[in-house]
Design a binder for these strands. Structure first.
Lengths: 97, 97
DNA sequence: CCTTTTGGTTTATATTATAAACCAATTTAT
DNA sequence: ATAAATTGGTTTATAATATAAACCAAAAGG
């Protein structure tokens, strides 16, 4: 990763919030809704994108006869996030004059 | 700054490239065009936005009877960039389990 | 059963990033 | 002289995409 190919995952605030929220632990759809304050539709769309890109995985579980989706950051997603932050930090560090 | 109000300045790759490029030194329009590989129109639009938001300043100088614009990162722009990176780093650090 | 709630997805709209077209001034070529 | 090309951009049209509104199915409550 370099400044010329920053992944799309980090360019939308909601996606960044989702990723940030999942760093500490997996979350359900509604937990993410609370922490991100996003609408359901928007959340659904962005989760689908992050999953398509391999940043998160989801698993549907039937709980009390209702589906409950849980979202988890993949190791790829975490490492991309770490790389992204390291890249920006390096830009700042290179300025040390 | 927190995860709920990430400035728009950082959500577009070209804007992030411009800011990154200006961290080390001021640059002219065409120097930015080379380092960012952007089209003139796109570069112009994003520079105007960054200037409107106070991230950069521009100065037009007449050199060999031609205008030459130079763009410089403001101290506000730099500190916002630093805050942004620190914020993301804090998210990662908070995961230390 | 009829309404409400849960747990989402699909689709339409609004925003905005990008590229194409344009413009004025200057230089170079004829 | 003046036509063509270059410099240094801005304006505008279009393409992409983020967001919100509408929708849907299944279950629970009244």
């Amino acid at each position: 990763m370099n400044i010329d190919n920053i992944p799309e995952a980090f360019s939308v605030t909601l996606r960044l919030k989702i990723i940030s929220s999942l760093v500490s632990s997996s979350k359900t759809f509604n937990e993410l809704r609370e922490t991100t304050q996003a609408t359901q539709g928007n959340l659904s769309v962005q989760l689908t994108k992050l999953e398509t890109w391999g940043y998160i995985t989801s698993s549907k579980v039937i709980e009390k006869k209702r589906t409950k989706s849980t979202y988890e950051l993949t190791s790829f997603g975490l490492s991309q996030f770490e790389e992204y932050v390291a890249l920006l930090q390096a830009v700042l560090d290179s300025n040390m004059s």
